[in-house]
Amino acid sequence: MESPFWITESPIEPTALKKTLQGAASGAFASFEGWVRNHNEGKQVNALEYSAYKPLAEKEGARIIEEAKEKFAVEAATCVHRVGPLEIGDIAIWVGVSAPHRSASFEACRFIVDEIKARVPIWKREGYQDGLTDWINCPSQELRKPL
């Protein structure tokens, strides 16, 4: 079976992904897109790069999708996370869930995004207008080089 979660270096194509979740038993579809924004904690973001420990990211991501299917009445669910240099407005993460009824699709979609943000080994480095960079969520950084 194809994995329900994967890491890609290519632009995410929601229309094609959505089609893979269609089914006659599904009366509801919910999706979430995480977009690259131009500011974070008051600083202007000019450049951004995601990276991943791909083997474990894909393993843990697939576990999260399986957990969502156990917790909620879901027909199908998929999540894709992009890595590499991204631009403002690019889709960084796409989650789609189809289900017989809407509440399960909303809840499962929210669950998947929240768990991926908390558990999957993916990292974000932001570059700011002043030329400095930050590894997001990492305390006590000393290296701050341009991206």
Binding site: L56, I116, K117, P121, W123, W135, P139
Partner: peptide
């Protein structure tokens, strides 16, 4: 062995 810094996906 891989040491995993605080994650920031999404």
């Amino acid at each position: 062995v891989v040491f995993i810094p605080p994650v920031a996906g999404g």
